[in-house]
Design a binder for these strands. Structure first.
Lengths: 220, 220
DNA sequence: GACACCAGTCAACACCCTGTCGAGTCCAAT
DNA sequence: ATTGGACTCGACAGGGTGTTGACTGGTGTC
């Protein structure tokens, strides 16, 4: 099990079993069907038969392309996290230019990426409890972001812009965790949630005060 | 459906169908079995048959006591949230005495309560995605805590101890969300997590800086 | 052109779990 | 003794998952 993903790269072969062939479009059709159905109902209410019929194949044939329903979601999640990583880019290495603007950019870009694929993100959050593969992939992705933020905080402390305080890693974990949960509530719309148009500024404010003890950190 | 809980009180009759009788111990046995099995494996891997056999009854008889597996977890969750509410007590109305100490007390008491029932809390977090009842109850409970924190923040601003800033409700949502997610990671132990002995102080630090812009708010 | 091979396909099956129905048992109150 | 409600469970229906074994059609080989 668990096809040995390289931590940094894309899954070598989570979907199809072997080389190129005409079945590529079927695989894509399954993925597209999943995204479409996710817009209509929760992941748990979508059966493998729904996915197969939506892609114009029978249920056993589905198993030729994916080992399980969860693997489809995993592939979708891969795409989203890749996009988020690309969107984040090198924002954090240019922090000193204008810390407030750069942190805001980081949060806003993540917000835009997740918001653009909210059905997939929501579905992943919902099955994370029951699907070990999704849980593992998400943990891996989160770890990467935590490390990046941790390094950025240490950089800001080193150049004297941010005061010492909590271990940078603990702070990075807490802030990333907050974002995840707050976005989930905002996108899901159940329970207490921050309005979507305010959420970036709310998160930014907590990040800045936690890191700098002020909402207007010094530029250099 | 959804037996019309009073928002503040205990469920009138989520379990048994009617009045007192010898079946009380059976109901308790089901609950006890659920807690025991939850210590061994995730909620999704526990079948109704497991619960029934553990309580010494047959599967159909289970349905005499609870309408579904989820209802058992809901009853367990009710107990935990009641305990958490009791533990929190009136800490927030005595904030001005010593803000840092009182906030820490609040967070530490929640931590102790959740930590003491981590299996139940973890199970709830995991099925929240798929179980609408659990989702609704949790949203209800969270809303209550958010309101309490919101009022406390406004109180601190009114007495001049905390500066103006984000809308108090948004800040309360963000901080409560952070706690939830951070505790989850700490108790679950998968993915980036704060060490259990540090988690109260890490959370406290973020709360204080977000609310007061300092980790040492004024007493009065 | 006969052959082997392999990607791709699906009907049928075995299995597990949920929820319900109907027929029972036991006991307390009439 | 009878009635009615609490309580119990065997048996069934329904729906989901994952696997098996047989079939098809294209492609390269001798």
């Amino acid at each position: 099990m668990s096809p040995a993903r390289t931590p940094t790269g894309v899954a070598p072969t989570r979907g199809r079993r072997s080389g190129r062939s005409t079945g590529d479009d079927r695989e894509l059709a399954i993925l597209a069907t999943a995204e479409r159905l996710l817009r209509q109902r929760p992941f748990g209410d979508i059966s493998i038969d729904d996915l197969a019929r939506g892609a114009g194949i029978s249920r056993p044939t589905f198993y030729f392309y994916f080992p399980s329903k969860g693997a489809v979601l995993l592939t979708l999640l891969d795409r989203v996290t890749d996009e988020a990583n690309a969107a984040a880019g090198d924002v954090l290495v240019r922090l000193a230019e204008d810390p407030r603007a750069r942190w805001r950019e980081l949060i806003a870009r993540f917000h835009a990426t997740f918001g653009g694929h909210r059905d997939v993100v929501l579905a992943c959050a919902q099955v994370r409890g029951t699907n070990a593969e999704v849980r593992r992939l998400w943990a891996e992705v989160l770890e990467r972001w935590v490390r990046a933020v941790e390094a950025a905080i240490e950089g800001e402390r080193a150049r004297g812009a941010a005061p010492d305080g909590l271990p940078a890693r603990d702070l990075a974990i807490a802030l990333n965790s907050m974002n995840e949960r707050v976005w989930y509530a905002t996108f899901a719309g159940d329970g207490p949630a921050v309005a979507e148009r305010d959420v970036v500024d709310v998160l930014l404010d907590v990040w800045l005060t936690a890191i700098y003890r002020t909402t207007t950190p010094p530029s250099l």
